[in-house]
């Protein structure tokens, strides 16, 4: 077990539905202990990729290996090493939080303590409440709890924080950091770019079924995408200037002797970089510009 062991390895992954190509040659690796974010607009191929890796869908061609096993052929032992948090589901929920987690804990050889997991997702007070009576965000936390109850080596988190309030999201981030510190490898998809920036070591951006960029959070989009922007208002509207020397631009502005309105110097966030990347790769579709929360 070396540090550079790939837990997930994907080569030239393709998935077609009739003539529609949902995935068009995607390749990436996730190393043991790494948190990898898969980003991209709705319909870009994120869920298709993740569901192929979880064993739910068959690929059309290409190679995929998850924990050293072809997910298409994954058996129960293999599944016992995974934690899967699917996109939100609508299960009837006639059992309580505690009953549901105890039941699922029994599926695994080395499960976590049920009460610890309930506390970790902040549902202590709802432990004896039926899942069907919880709010959307609380149910989502049950999903997360079910994903980690089996102490997985590899955890799939497909839009895990949908419906969370900001406080719940922060405590979820803390939970993920604990899981990381324990050595869990995590594959995350999210529409919240700050979440990806906070949690992941590396990210891949998918658009139109292709991986358009991959790298550490600081590298995504390349160095040019992170050139600071000087922004201010004048009579004609908002002015923007991308420059490696923002100080000089501001000094220039001040030469007129008038304080510019709304002056700011910003370094593009992951979200800015992401939006630019996606826009550059799908010129035809205006919809894909929306981060679609």
């Amino acid at each position: 077990m070396t540090d550079s062991e790939a837990v997930v390895s994907v080569r030239d992954l393709r998935k077609t539905y009739g003539s529609f190509s949902a995935l068009d040659g995607v390749s990436f690796d996730i190393q043991r202990g790494e948190t990898f974010a898969l980003l991209g607009p709705n319909g870009a191929g994120k869920s298709t990729t993740i569901e192929i890796l979880e064993g739910y869908r068959n690929r059309t061609s290409g190679e995929a290996s998850v924990l050293g096993i072809d997910p298409h052929k994954g058996d129960l032992l293999w599944k016992s090493r995974l934690g899967i948090v699917l996109q939100s589901t609508g299960e009837s929920g006639n059992l309580t939080v505690h009953e549901q987690l105890s039941h699922f804990a029994g599926f695994y050889e080395n499960s976590r303590n049920v009460d610890d997991v309930i506390a970790a997702v902040g549902l202590q007070e709802k432990s004896k409440t039926r899942i069907g009576k919880l709010s959307g965000g609380q149910r989502r936390r049950v999903d997360v709890a079910l994903g980690i109850i089996g102490r997985p080596e590899l955890l799939f988190l497909d839009e895990p924080t949908t419906g969370f309030d900001p406080e719940a999201r922060r405590s979820f981030w803390d939970l993920v950091r604990v899981l990381k510190s324990e050595g869990t490898t995590i594959l995350l998809t999210t529409h919240y770019l700050d979440e990806a920036a906070q949690l992941s070591d590396r990210a891949g951006v998918i658009a139109g079924g292709r991986l358009i960029d991959i790298g550490t959070i600081d590298e995504i989009g390349g160095a040019e995408a992170r050139v600071p922007i000087v922004r201010w208002h004048d009579a004609t509207g908002v002015q923007e200037r991308r420059t490696h020397e923002p100080g000089a631009v501001v000094a220039d502005l001040m030469r007129s002797g008038v304080e510019p309105d709304g002056l700011e110097i910003v370094r593009p966030s992951l979200e800015d970089v992401y939006l630019e990347l996606v826009a550059a790769n799908s010129p035809s579709s205006i919809e894909s510009l929306e981060p679609s929360l």
């Binding site: 739910y56 129960l76 995974l82 699917l86 599926f107 089996g150």
Partner: peptide, 8 residues
């Protein structure tokens, strides 16, 4: 779907 992804 959830059960299918678990080792049940």
């Amino acid at each position: 779907k959830r059960l299918g992804g678990s080792p049940l």
